[in-house]
Amino acid sequence: MIVADRKSLEEILSMVETDKKILVVGCKGCVTVCNVGGAKEVEVLASALKIARKKAENELEIDTHVLERQCDNEYVSQLGDTVGDYDAVVSMACGVGPQFLSEMYREQVFYPAVNTTFFGGATQHGVWEERCAGCGTCGIHLFGGICPIARCAKSLLHGPCGGSSNGACEVNKDTECIWDTIVKKKMEQGKVDDLLAVKGFKDWRSARDGGPRRSIREELVEGNI
């Protein structure tokens, strides 16, 4: 899923500083699963903002709403009747949400309340870790089911570098050296040879480097693309 972290209240408060009436919109997709922008978090943010503004004797009126998803126009359109009633709208979805909202409602201002961080999963309750960099050319099977593009600080295809120490990355002792993990797994399996051949130069066109990307399922498309 897409993982995000909420921005500081200070930053969000400064975004809506001059507003008197706002809407906070959550999303029932990824940000609900990673407990940052679902129904609960929308209410908590709204309450915290109200407390802060009451304290500043500059009360802020806040309505809340949670969309099924903010990355589908079908759901985004559900705000059509009310979106114009607010000075601004704060989206708690990943970076996709405020953009879909902005594209549909051109007159309204949408603020992002979260920082979208990575594609990952929960390794334990309350802890999420990066697993995928969305490079567009998946090769995890070449590395024992582990992605060094996303998980090595240098995205090495031939690691570990000279900074690997006791299974930790040189960047931070709390960061796993993923190449240490890859190598050890291959050693346990007696398949170290899999790693030794020099791999082809990665074609980054399929990644963000090739420009914004688009996926098309022709069987689903009606009319022109």
Binding site: P160, G163, S164, V183, V192, L196
Partner: peptide, 13 residues
């Protein structure tokens, strides 16, 4: 650097 046993293989590569 670690893992030590792999270093000589990486050198070979």
């Amino acid at each position: 650097a670690d893992p030590y046993e792999y270093r000589v293989h990486r050198l070979a590569s």
